[in-house]
Design a protein around this nucleic acid. Sequence first.
DNA 1: CGCGCCGTCG
DNA 2: CGACGGCGCG
Lengths: 391, 391
Amino acid sequence: MLEAKLAEAGTLKKLLDAIKELVTDANFECNEEGINLQAMDNSHVALVAVHLEAAGFKRYRCDRPMPLGVNLTSLTKVLKCAKDDDITTLKAADEADVLNLVYEAKNSDRIAEYDMKLMDIDSDTLGIPDTEYDARVTMPSAEFTRIVRDLSQLGESVRIEVSKEGVRFASEGEAANGSVLMKQTDGASVAGGNKIMAKTKREDGVDEEEQEGGEEEEQEEGGSKKAKKEKVKKEKTDGDVDMVVDDEEKEDGEEEFKPNSDDEEGEEEQGDDDENEDEDDDEEGGKKRKKKANGSAKPKKKAKTSSSSSSKSKLKKGKKEDDEDAQAITIEMNQHVSLTFSLKYLVNFSKSASLCPKVQLMMSNDVPLLVAYDFGQGYIRYYLAPKIGDD
Amino acid sequence: MLEAKLAEAGTLKKLLDAIKELVTDANFECNEEGINLQAMDNSHVALVAVHLEAAGFKRYRCDRPMPLGVNLTSLTKVLKCAKDDDITTLKAADEADVLNLVYEAKNSDRIAEYDMKLMDIDSDTLGIPDTEYDARVTMPSAEFTRIVRDLSQLGESVRIEVSKEGVRFASEGEAANGSVLMKQTDGASVAGGNKIMAKTKREDGVDEEEQEGGEEEEQEEGGSKKAKKEKVKKEKTDGDVDMVVDDEEKEDGEEEFKPNSDDEEGEEEQGDDDENEDEDDDEEGGKKRKKKANGSAKPKKKAKTSSSSSSKSKLKKGKKEDDEDAQAITIEMNQHVSLTFSLKYLVNFSKSASLCPKVQLMMSNDVPLLVAYDFGQGYIRYYLAPKIGDD
DNA sequence: CGCGCCGTCG
DNA sequence: CGACGGCGCG
């Protein structure tokens, strides 16, 4: 059975607000680690992944993995019945067809209880490999919201370009063209040379090895090492085409959503190859990039040899500072990237700003953008394939 | 070329917000004095005139007069992309077909640049004569907003009546009738006898003669003295009929919007006939009013002889006090006026309240109302013809 | 200044 | 019918 007690209903409400427009039904995959939700958006262009850490709950118990098929519209309605600061307990029996929600007012003078019907949802959970990116932009989430909403007034698409200059968002439209350039806050040169990978708050301050090995629950749940070799067809079309999974090499029943294509060796995605990993990474990343019509030099390698450990600590320091000052803008770049995305989706993603004062944009050329919001109890991550004709 | 640097985008944003519903396309007439915009509203019932003083810009340069044809919807969109406190630079090359806008965040970590397409717009700029009115009400702009919004819930029209009692706004509706009476703040008797003419802030404290001669750029730009004799047909209908310009006597190519009908002599609109002007005014105004079903005595003349100079200084003092205390209500009256206007338009005009804490209502019987908001860098003025059946 | 409600647009 | 934006209120 599942029993998860959340200190505040607000987190859940905001989460649902953030994704309910994108996804109508989804499985809440509950296990002893916490709760995960992963789904393609309704038009199968974007992917959203939510994680709620077991430790983030006031109380958490889940004897064995159970998927709870939830209609998000229904859950949103039920959650509207909770005040933001209500203590909220989610309960589901094994094989249950209802999710029980109990809202307890802070002062306990009110207890509300709801039973929401569950549904069976085809679990097309994709394994999302932990991928290295060429660039990460960390900025105030409100700023990101602002930029994409502004530009969405002008046109449909935005080109996001990370260079030494900073990060530029540029759109073209009927009435006007617009371009927003954000520079690293302190004017320091753009950080580079460190590995740029998604990580969660709870991983701050732990060793990088640990980060790499431990951060993607999806990996442990679904993917074997062999499965890691599966390859996503990045169909970079303008609209409604799925980010489909290539069947070749698939060896277990689970599909994998794999934004990066550094897959010939694939071992760097595992946490068990430790320090050698960096070098492997560079080799593989470099090879791959060449193959992909981006044959520029590998600044990553150079940077790595010159400043690997220092830039690692710098990265961590930067992240801490962001926590202290949500206004900071940090740009890490190992490679110039320039990608074009649908503003409609980015505007949608940016709703999650209420969950977290900052957002990370992780990019590599020709690879889906990762938009990540990390909050205390977990994260919400969006993946969006670039449009074709980008550059 | 034009290059105009504004300390805060907010001013421009508020201006556009204020007029974009009224007007869709308009020429920004730029010259070395500043920027002017003048347009009839879409249904040609009201006229809006905006002036931005060159001196109000952080930097201003305009080599030669250039009209920039702007779609206000587009400009509004582009301005939405600016934060209120962004330093904003407008640039346009000679004969350019785009307006370049650069927004620079106060801390310079963000620079956004937009290019907005320009269009050719028939420049039907009207010369707006500097007219003397029978009454001026200066009141907190929020108060005006409130009153017209309140009354608009009851009916379509408001009768605005200025008398010794104060200024009364009265509406009649199906469900209820309403009347709001505002008295001069300090309870002092209503000022009268001075010339009541629109003036801008920068003119405070200069001689009245200078005010009269120098305050309407539209005059210098467009109207000759002969043109002043042109006469507006005041078609005082409820809705869609233009405030058209009468062709008779028109001697240059420029049309003129002429809210006052003291036009047989017409010279009082020039600054060069000084003190005698008042008497001419009274004669002409009186004649005209008689012709138009307002045959009341001419209190203006009496007031002038008794308190002309003292009330002039009082007027200036009153305006200064308004600057100090935006809550003050000042009523100046040379003649009882009673006019009826469409509330829909007044509600629309009152949006400009965000630009300036006070508003001036200038009225003469049977003449378009002038609603004027003066802010630091310029002004926005609305003219609205009275409805028939007023009084 | 932030939140909630109403109206408009997709 | 739902979402987004604007306006009004506390």
